[in-house]
């Protein structure tokens, strides 16, 4: 049952988007965010939307996968839509009982929902096309300047990649412990929330004990392989920006400029 959980949803592929340097993709996402928050009218939002549609098409990620990712966020989307729709002052176009819809409200609602949708799709596109390991590497490289401020960049990246490495191992272990408990009559499926939470306690205790033992052994094994922190450490795979990366970044800067210019026209 736990096998269904997909963490760090990554759809392997070999498209232009997949091949881009993770740093390029990370910076692009940030630029896209800035562009989306700058865009306040139809035309500028449309420009961002079009670039995203282009990116999705290039990545060959099925739009359905993106929509599926949106599901847990539906509440926020509806909430924002309702707030904007009924509580914006302006020219009234429809009214019933205590509700009033203004044309400004309608416009704002559509733009807001569109904006949330684009923001989320953009982050999903990043995690769908970049393996968690590449993401960690990219982040480590991008955050490197923070080392000067004593921010533990290398340690953080190492922790992330080890956590990613052990997720499947620990899921497998949880499954095993749960089966063992079930075989001895434990019941995880019936009862209320409290009862089920309490039933998980005998699973969590052995899981934690084993995770700590694993951590201890892993630390020894890492020491045996001469691990001594990030200092003087090299990498087998160094990240390299190619022409495609430079062009992508230029493209995004272009989009951002375009959005800023279009904002002035206030369409």
């Amino acid at each position: 049952m736990l096998k269904d959980i997909t963490l760090g949803q990554y759809f392997p592929g070999d498209t232009l988007v997949h091949r881009l340097d993770p740093r390029t993709k990370l910076i692009s996402v940030v630029l896209d965010f800035i562009a989306l928050f700058t865009a306040n009218n139809w035309l500028s939002t449309a420009v961002v939307a079009l670039t995203l549609i282009l990116a999705v098409a290039l990545s060959r990620i099925k739009p359905r996968a993106l929509l599926k990712g949106m599901k847990p966020l539906m509440f926020i989307v509806v909430f924002t839509a309702v707030l904007n729709l009924f509580y914006t002052e302006g020219h009234v176009i429809a009214q019933f009982w205590i509700f009033r819809i203004t044309s400004e409200g309608l416009r704002r609602t559509i733009l807001m929902v569109l904006r949330i949708f684009l923001l989320v799709s953009c982050t999903f596109l990043l995690t769908y096309t970049t393996s968690p390991l590449q993401l960690t590497d990219g982040l480590e490289q991008l955050l490197r300047p923070l080392k000067k401020l004593r921010f533990p960049v290398h340690e953080l990246a190492m922790m992330m990649s080890i956590a990613l490495r052990f997720i499947p191992t620990l899921i497998e272990e949880t499954d095993k412990i749960m089966s063992a408990q079930k075989a001895r009559g434990a019941d995880f499926e019936t009862g209320g929330l409290m009862r089920r939470a309490r039933a998980l306690l005998p699973v969590l205790v052995p899981l934690f004990v084993s995770a700590l033992r694993r951590a201890d052994e892993l630390a020894t094994a890492m020491e045996c392989r001469c691990y001594h922190g990030g200092e003087g450490r090299t990498r087998m795979k160094t990240l390299q920006m190619h022409t495609a990366d430079h062009l992508t970044l230029l493209f995004w800067i272009g989009v951002l400029c375009c959005v800023i210019v279009l904002k002035r026209f206030g369409l």
């Binding site: 080890i162 052994e217 392989r225």
Partner: peptide, 26 residues
């Protein structure tokens, strides 16, 4: 325990771990 000695999520990255620590060239 082989599980508790493997550091990376890809086989070749794991094998690269020790020489990376030693500062060997890519």
């Amino acid at each position: 325990n082989p599980d508790n000695q493997i550091v990376a999520s890809v086989v070749e990255d794991d094998v690269a771990f020790a020489p990376e620590n030693l500062g060997v060239e890519s």
